[in-house]
C-alpha cells in the first residue's frame, strides 16, 4: 500500500512539474520515472500510474471546462463523436492520459527489473 501511494504521488508530482516544460508526453516520462524508482508488483505497475494521470487530467480538464460552461467540450464531443456529452469527453481524456501513463509505468518497472540486481 505504501508503494502504491508513493508511486501515485511521485507520478503526479513529476507530471505536474514536467507539464510546465514539455508537451503532452511529459506524463509518460513521469510515469516511466516513478515506475523505475518505486517498485510495483503485477497489475498495479499499470493501474497506479493509470489512476494518477487519469485523475490529474480529469480534474484539470473539468476545472477548465466547468469555468466556461462546457461550451467547447460539448462541441468536441460531437466531433469525436461522443454524442455531445461533455462528461464523457472528460472521462475519455482521463483514459487516454491514463493509458499512456500506465504503459509507460509498466515500462519503467521493467527497466528497473532488468537493470537492478536486488530485484532478483
Amino acid at each position: 500500500m505504501k508503494s502504491f501511494l508513493s508511486n501515485f504521488s511521485l507520478t503526479l508530482v513529476l507530471a505536474l512539474v514536467f507539464s510546465l516544460l514539455l508537451p503532452w508526453w511529459s506524463i509518460m516520462l513521469a510515469a516511466f520515472l516513478s515506475g523505475a524508482i518505486v517498485r510495483l508488483r503485477k497489475a498495479s505497475a499499470f493501474v497506479v500510474p493509470f489512476l494518477a494521470i487519469a485523475v490529474f487530467w480529469i480534474v484539470y480538464a473539468w476545472l477548465l471546462s466547468s469555468a466556461n460552461d462546457f461550451i467547447l467540450a460539448e462541441k468536441i464531443a460531437v466531433l469525436l463523436p461522443l454524442g455531445g456529452n461533455a462528461v464523457l469527453l472528460i472521462l475519455v481524456t482521463g483514459i487516454v492520459g491514463g493509458l499512456a501513463a500506465g504503459i509507460a509505468g509498466l515500462f519503467g518497472n521493467q527497466c528497473r527489473a532488468l537493470f537492478s540486481q536486488s530485484d532478483q
Binding site: S19, W57, Y60, T93
Partner: peptide, 11 residues
C-alpha cells in the same frame, strides 16, 4: 486532449 496544451486550453 491533454488539458495543458490541448483543446481544454481553448475552453
Amino acid at each position: 486532449l491533454n488539458p495543458y496544451t490541448g483543446i481544454w486550453q481553448n475552453e
